[in-house]
Design a protein around this nucleic acid. Sequence first.
RNA 1: GCCCCCAUCGUCUAGAGGCCUAGGACGCCACCCUUUCAAGGUGGAGAUCAGGGGUUCGAAUCCCCUUGGGGGCACCA
Length: 493
Amino acid sequence: MRIAPSPTGPLHIGTARTALFNFLFARHVGGTFVLRLEDTDVARSSLAYEKDILDGLHWLGLTWDEGPGVAGEEARGPYGPYRQMERLPRYSEAADRLVADDMAYPCYCTPAELDAERKRLEAAHLPPRYSGRCARLTAPERAAFDADGRIPALRFRVGEGVVAFDDIVRGRVEIDVANLGGDFVIVRADGTPLYHFTVVVDDAAMRISHVIRGEDHLSNTPKHILLFRALGETVPRFAHLPLILNADRTKMSKRKSQTAIDDYIAEGFIREGIDNYLALLGWATGTEEEVLGIDELIARFQLENVHKGAAVFDRERLEWLNGQWIRRLDPDELVERLRPFLEAERVAGRSDRVSTDDELRALMPLVQERLPVLGAIGELIGFLFVDRLEVDPALLVPKRWDAATAGAGLIAARETIAAVSEVTFEADELEPPLRALAEEHGWKAGDLFMAIRVAVTGRTATPPLFDTLVALGRERTLARLDAAIAALGVAAG
RNA sequence: GCCCCCAUCGUCUAGAGGCCUAGGACGCCACCCUUUCAAGGUGGAGAUCAGGGGUUCGAAUCCCCUUGGGGGCACCA
């Protein structure tokens, strides 16, 4: 199996999903997973995108058995090179063979001529189609064009008949060659080969047995089959995956959806969540199991169960699955993965320092079940790492209270908390006296706790209060209470 | 325009002729738990299986048509 991305943009969700399905299938059947870079669109390809794609696939855990050398590392696999621009001689050799067998021919039509032809057909409400004008040029006619200085492209003769194949997910597909749009170009006038040609030459050369790709290639498959046959190669099995859709049910696009894997990584989605979610987009185990790790996915994966219908990308479900996986992470591992996000908070100026690993580890029980994405960590515990906390005085007054009560409550709470010594400053030591305090004054414990919460965190939604106070420490807790009391005084006055 | 593909709750899906008065999950709504927020638990609303014809004793499941949606038709990949 193979994944053959074009380095013409950052790693796209759709490419990642196709790679994942190839990977799952390859691992399930004990096959070989190949990565090939289709960089023949030189104008749009770049090394930066190439790196982005390879890094992204790695990040997702989709490791390939054969692929190009990167960052000084050797290429792996016996069928390299794995970049198409390094395989040019192979394409021209294959093209020469097709020309020698008269299965391909030089076409001298200029882009302008072809364009005019297409426009004419369009105006007549006819499907675009190459006329075949150069298909039966005689040797002298070709010589005349050559003498004229015209550089020909190469076209493949599609012939006639019906091409049929048994797609693993779609079943039998039959397409009349007459609908292929006429003989198609396989080599540009500048000598560079085109996608439909390179993909076939390479899939054959790399001994690809199963071509698993997006449904957008279904209509092109007959062209590929014709090419495999013309080259005398074995036609691989095909499996066309359902497309991933925008919310409006059109093919998922950058314009209407967040498609770059990088953006999901930056938000703090984790590979386990993304892999799990993507695997379940267009495929199901047939059981009610949904939270599945990569090994479980591999064990259960069957191309036969892949859906035919396209699937709308549902971010809510991704977030849920991501949260499931964050909760399943080993706490030390979570600390590890959180660090860059805390660093980002500091860089963005939202916190004054980054926590130590010990501090963070102690917080894991509080944060682990509250993170849908890693990027939410700042919202959750950022208040612990700021020197000067901004508190909206209005928030300090719980709904059922007035400012005076809030002030009294915080002053009383401050005294109670101050009575707890530094050494025994634990959640167990804090809760009972504060509850007693509330009861003594006839306050609802929740109201008192909310006032304290806002005073020390600036927020109404936080991890459990007493653990939060402990994390903050006695000194800072008291200081923030003092600041809040002062702020209330001003607001009340 | 032509060709190809597809069609079960808002979304992801289970379903391969009787187990379906259609199951699960996300989301939503209640309730429970609870100091807030989450997490978790329980329950609920939500799909006449796009519509219409067949086939069959029996159809979400098979066939046909219609409708709707999508994809493809480049010297892009």
